[in-house]
Amino acid sequence: MRRGEDFAVAIRRGDRAGRRTLVVHMKRRDELDTPPLVGFVVSRAVGGAVTRNLVKRRLRHLMRDRLHLLPRGSLLVVRANPPAASARFERLAAELDVALDRLLGRRGSDPQARTDGRR
């Protein structure tokens, strides 16, 4: 996702699921002919440029494996909170899974059982 309008729509009009290290906003759209779009927000509150880029790369890598879970045409924004800077990769994965499960309506999974980011 690159357009500011898409970020604004997902954040202002979409559903939200927050965790300690990140917040995920998702807006479902009726445009079934387009793939889901994902954007990342990592502010200066997370850390310096090197830290922000590291967090963004980790989140991008995690979302790559979960992209198939998103409905077609949806807009998803992953916003990193300051604790994401010191969180281990496995913790980011687990919290992203819990947030996505909540947004996608899958309540059957136990967030404590998944610490390695796998299903």
Score class of each variant (00 low, 15 high):
residue 95 E to P: 03
residue 94 A to N: 08
residue 12 R to K: 14
residue 89 F to N: 13
residue 25 H to L: 04
residue 54 L to Y: 09
residue 13 R to P: 02
residue 64 R to W: 07
residue 52 R to D: 03
residue 14 G to P: 07
residue 30 D to L: 07
residue 42 V to R: 02
residue 17 A to E: 10
residue 47 G to R: 03
residue 82 P to Y: 13
residue 20 R to Q: 10
residue 19 R to T: 12
residue 74 S to K: 02
residue 50 V to C: 06
residue 42 V to F: 12
residue 41 V to A: 14
residue 70 L to I: 02
residue 72 R to F: 07
residue 65 D to C: 05
residue 45 A to V: 04
residue 70 L to S: 08
residue 61 H to W: 04
residue 45 A to I: 02
residue 79 R to L: 09
residue 98 V to I: 01
residue 18 G to F: 07
residue 26 M to D: 00
residue 28 R to I: 03
residue 22 L to K: 02
residue 82 P to C: 11
residue 80 A to S: 11
residue 76 L to N: 00
residue 85 A to N: 11
residue 14 G to S: 12
residue 76 L to F: 01
residue 35 P to N: 07
residue 30 D to Q: 12
residue 69 L to I: 01
residue 30 D to S: 14
residue 17 A to Y: 07
residue 90 E to P: 00
residue 34 T to G: 00
residue 15 D to C: 11
residue 100 L to K: 03
residue 63 M to P: 03
residue 75 L to V: 03
residue 56 K to C: 05
residue 26 M to F: 01
residue 91 R to G: 04
residue 73 G to L: 13
residue 78 V to C: 09
residue 79 R to Q: 14
residue 63 M to T: 07
residue 59 L to Q: 06
residue 25 H to Q: 08
residue 11 I to W: 04
residue 73 G to I: 09
residue 41 V to D: 06
residue 62 L to I: 02
residue 83 P to Y: 11
residue 37 L to N: 01
residue 15 D to R: 15
residue 97 D to M: 10
residue 88 R to V: 04
residue 82 P to M: 13
residue 89 F to Y: 15
residue 56 K to G: 04
residue 18 G to Q: 09
residue 33 D to V: 08
residue 34 T to N: 13
residue 36 P to F: 15
residue 14 G to C: 12
residue 59 L to W: 09
residue 21 T to S: 15
residue 30 D to P: 02
residue 92 L to C: 03
residue 45 A to Q: 15
residue 56 K to P: 01
residue 71 P to S: 07
residue 63 M to S: 05
residue 23 V to C: 06
residue 19 R to V: 03
residue 54 L to K: 12
residue 62 L to Y: 10
residue 56 K to V: 03
residue 40 F to H: 12
residue 67 L to S: 03
residue 50 V to H: 11
residue 89 F to E: 12
residue 55 V to P: 00
residue 74 S to R: 05
residue 44 R to P: 00
residue 22 L to M: 11
residue 50 V to N: 08
residue 49 A to I: 06
residue 85 A to Q: 10
residue 19 R to D: 10
residue 30 D to T: 08
residue 70 L to Y: 06
residue 88 R to D: 15
residue 47 G to K: 03
residue 90 E to M: 00
residue 12 R to Q: 13
residue 42 V to W: 05
residue 15 D to M: 12
residue 12 R to M: 06
residue 86 S to Q: 15
residue 68 H to W: 11
residue 26 M to Q: 09
residue 84 A to M: 09
residue 35 P to K: 10
residue 51 T to Y: 02
residue 83 P to L: 14
residue 53 N to K: 05
residue 85 A to H: 13
residue 72 R to C: 04
residue 62 L to K: 06
residue 27 K to N: 11
residue 13 R to W: 13
residue 45 A to W: 10
residue 88 R to C: 07
residue 24 V to S: 01
residue 39 G to L: 07
residue 52 R to F: 11
residue 42 V to K: 02
residue 32 L to Y: 09
residue 16 R to T: 08
residue 71 P to G: 08
residue 35 P to W: 14
residue 25 H to I: 02
residue 64 R to M: 06
residue 98 V to H: 14
residue 81 N to S: 05
residue 26 M to Y: 00
residue 91 R to K: 11
residue 66 R to A: 01
residue 60 R to H: 12
residue 55 V to I: 05
residue 70 L to G: 11
residue 89 F to V: 01
residue 39 G to R: 08
residue 60 R to G: 02
residue 19 R to P: 01
residue 80 A to F: 14
residue 49 A to Y: 11
residue 72 R to I: 01
residue 79 R to A: 15
residue 45 A to R: 15
residue 37 L to E: 15
residue 86 S to F: 07
